[in-house]
Design a protein around this nucleic acid. Structure first.
Length: 756
DNA sequence: GAGTTTGAAACT
DNA sequence: CAGTTTCAAACTC
């Protein structure tokens, strides 16, 4: 494992926070209750934000950001509403030691302290001593610990704060934020089968400790919605099983994968991976979920797609399940997945449908968990050590999971940032990377030097780059290119699609998109990155755009390419070399300008001499920005008042308009031709608006031919020029076609009138 | 598609 | 840090 200098952290923020590169996912603006992350959080996450997306990026809010979150069962129509729910703008914290997942920002201590100040305990969902600590980022949120229930716990039982031993056999719907009553817990495993199959909804109840008494816990709702699609009625395994929490410490405990996610045509797969691809990336638009898996885990993981709405204090984590998810697979995977792997993964689907967050168990640490949270562009994952987690329970049934309030005492050692949600792809068994994207993904995983966790990172695959956060103490960062995930998925040994329980998403764009050179997200996402053509650099130098963008070469034309998983060592070395040479080598070149200057400018400026900075040789021009004072160009014409530039821009605009018009014309013509063919093509079946008869019959063709021939003869007799003759013939042909179409339409109408 | 131009990256 | 070389993309024909 390589640790890069703290400078790496400095380059992360810009890209991370550059939300322009993030694929646009509809995210409703939070109502007044939305909690904004504090800029001060940047201390732990040194990000330079070109756009004020901090809160959104860190937000786990998925389905709704409004104060009131309502989860409705698609089948039964039952709904659970939580008032005062807000976006949970908290990163995840994972405690490998105690299976704790803390959804909180680096400054989780702040939230924890705040919670303590009000006398509240972090809400914990425990399973056999495993805790999920969900805390709001920044100030107002109180940490919530989701502790997995013991197997023997009874369904529907709400856990009070401090009762870490009590176990809930199943997920419960818990409302957090002012509501004292607990939602009825979803039925037991057996019940869940029926209930879930019917309702396709799973609710996770999370009890929140109240400051004064645990009797009236504040609730936040975690609901799981399973897509009925593809769900076989005979399926013996209910989606609820997916949410089952098993004791990781137990050797026979099946790997736990809890997917709280929108399954929107996306597949989430948790694969026991041995590697984590972490590499410094250049652009913010890419976010890759990196899995830190134990090399020893070789069993299948269970994944559960859960729409989760988590309201914590004033913060809310909302996850809605998409309808496209295949619950059948989930159930299957869960039923099949058994105790071999100690991996827990939680996937949370957001409204956007393509976004996921995954918390993956780190290495062999039993406490490591995977969490996928869809719906949030930017995610935070922190790994913390939980000192109070209890792990004695045995996983009873697939449907048993409980949420308890519990103590949170953990040492933060690792922080994982995940942003740029993407459509999940099948994961490889060798890697625990969970998410894939239509857009580029990048995973930044801060790693802390805690000794107990350090061993885990030794299992990271080559290419992993870990960097300590500047002044972050025990917090560091690791950047992983989304491409890594893609490669893992493309690897021959990656075949979890069938076992993942999630349908493999189709049409997923494997090539990550970067807001390269300041291009907008739409620009970068609308067109695929050009394949490189490197011949001598082995794609391991910045000459290679793929490498420079932190991507693996994919479908490129390069020769002797080393920018792939097969040459991880070389790649890592090259990355280090580049970083040694220039710590900001992978930082976006287009950043924010000085005060009063343009919002975007080249970080280093160009050095053009002959192009006048009006050709794409110039990086400024290529990025569609003006040259700035830091440029060293000669004969620059790329400034605001430049007539050459204006002319060029006008020409470019005109050309673009022409292209658009041509495209539209082609589309229209194609549509017309298609429509014509539809009308004239003989159709046996009368469905789909097709004409029931064959109108272009042999007789029609012969008649048309006669007409055309007659027109030709007429032209010849009148000694018309060839061009005129052709025109006449074509004109006649057009008339023939019109008559055919007219006849066809009339015949169809007549047919319809007689109901044929 | 081949060859040229260009400027960033890499090297000295 | 400056000059030179290498490199791959952009551009031209």
């Amino acid at each position: 494992m390589d640790v890069v200098s703290p400078e790496l952290n400095s380059l992360l923020p810009d890209e991370i926070m550059d939300t322009e590169a993030i694929e646009d996912v509809p995210q409703p603006q939070p109502v007044a209750t939305t909690v904004q992350s504090e800029p001060s959080d940047d201390t732990s996450v040194p990000m330079e934000t070109d756009t004020p997306m901090v809160s959104e990026s860190l937000s786990l809010s998925l389905a709704t950001s409004t104060a009131t979150t309502k989860t409705t069962d698609s089948v039964t129509g039952t709904s659970v509403s939580t008032s005062g729910l807000q976006k949970l703008t908290a990163p995840f914290t994972i405690s490998p030691a105690n299976h704790q997942i803390i959804l909180n920002k680096v400054a989780s201590s702040q939230a924890t302290e705040a919670a303590k100040s009000v006398g509240t305990q972090p809400q914990v969902i425990k399973q056999e001593g495993q805790k999920l600590l969900v805390t709001a980022i920044g100030k107002s949120g109180q940490p919530i610990v989701l502790q997995l229930p013991h197997t023997g716990s009874k369904p529907g039982v709400s856990q009070t704060s401090g009762d870490t031993k009590s176990q809930a056999p199943q997920f419960k719907v818990v409302t957090i934020g002012g509501r004292s009553e607990l939602k009825p817990v979803v039925g037991s495993a057996s019940n869940q089968v029926t209930t879930l199959q019917a309702q396709q909804l799973k609710a996770v109840q999370i009890a929140k400790k109240t400051p004064a008494s645990s009797a009236a816990p504040i609730k936040f709702i975690i609901t799981k919605t399973v897509n009925s699609k593809g769900l076989s009625p005979q399926t013996s395994v209910p989606p609820v099983i997916a949410g089952r929490v098993l004791t990781q410490n137990s050797p026979v405990i099946p790997p736990r994968t809890i997917t709280l996610s929108e399954t929107h045509n996306t597949s989430i797969q948790s694969i026991p991976g041995k590697k984590i691809a972490i590499s410094p990336l250049k652009t913010p638009s890419k976010v890759t979920v990196v899995s830190v898996a134990s090399p020893t885990s070789n069993t299948s993981q269970k994944s559960v797609a859960l729409p989760v709405n988590v309201a914590l204090g004033q913060q809310i984590l909302t996850v809605q399940q998409s309808t496209s998810a295949s619950p059948v697979k989930v159930a299957t995977s869960q039923s099949t997945a058994q105790s071999i792997k100690p991996v827990q993964s939680v996937a949370v689907g957001g409204v956007g449908g393509s976004q996921f967050k995954t918390i993956i168990p780190l290495a062999t640490q039993p406490n490591v968990q995977q969490i996928q949270v869809p719906g949030s562009r930017f995610h935070y994952v922190r790994l913390v050590t939980a000192t109070t987690a209890s792990s004695t329970g045995q996983p009873s049934g697939p449907s048993t999971s409980s949420i308890q309030t519990g103590d949170l005492s953990a040492d933060i050692f690792t922080v994982v940032f995940i942003w740029q949600m993407v459509a999940p792809k099948p994961l490889t068994s060798a890697a625990q990377v969970v998410t894939t994207t239509q857009t580029q993904q990048r995973l930044i995983m801060p790693a802390t030097p805690l000794p107990q966790i350090q061993p885990n990172f030794t299992n990271l695959p080559p290419g992993t780059v870990l960097a300590p956060a500047p002044g972050g103490g025990n917090v560091g960062y690791a950047v992983v290119p989304a491409q890594y995930v893609t490669q893992l998925q493309q690897s021959p040994f990656v075949t979890l699609a069938s076992s993942s329980g999630f349908p493999a998403s189709t049409g997923i764009q494997t090539q990550a998109r970067l807001p390269l050179n300041g291009l907008s997200t739409a620009e970068t996402t609308s067109r695929p990155r050009k394949p490189c053509n490197c011949t001598k650099s082995q794609c391991l130098k910045l000459y290679c755009d793929c490498f420079a963008n932190g991507e693996f070469c994919n479908n490129c034309n390069c020769n002797n390419c080393f920018n792939n998983l097969e040459h991880e060592t070389e790649r890592l070395k090259a990355i280090k070399t580049c970083l040694d040479r220039n710590p900001e080598a992978f930082k976006p070149k287009i950043g924010k300008g000085k005060e009063g200057e343009s919002d975007r400018r080249h970080s280093k400026g160009c050095n053009c001499k002959r192009s006048g900075c009006l050709k794409n040789y110039c990086e400024c021009y290529e990025a569609k920005i003006m040259c700035s004072s830091i440029c060293k160009c000669i004969g620059c014409k790329n400034f605001e008042e430049s007539p050459e530039r204006k002319t060029l821009m006008h020409l470019a605009d005109a050309a673009e308009v022409r292209v658009q018009q041509q495209t539209a014309a082609k589309t229209k013509l194609s549509s017309q031709i298609s429509d014509l063919l539809m009308r004239t093509t003989p159709v046996i079946s009368s469905g789909g608006g097709r004409l029931p008869y064959t109108f272009v019959t042999k007789e029609v063709l012969e008649a048309t031919y006669e007409c055309l021939l007659e027109q030709a003869k007429k032209a010849e007799q009148t000694h018309q020029p060839q061009a005129e003759a052709e025109r006449m013939i074509l004109e006649e042909f057009g008339h023939c076609l019109m008559r055919i179409i007219s006849s066809a339409g009339k015949a169809k109408a007549d047919c319809a009138s007689i109901n044929c």
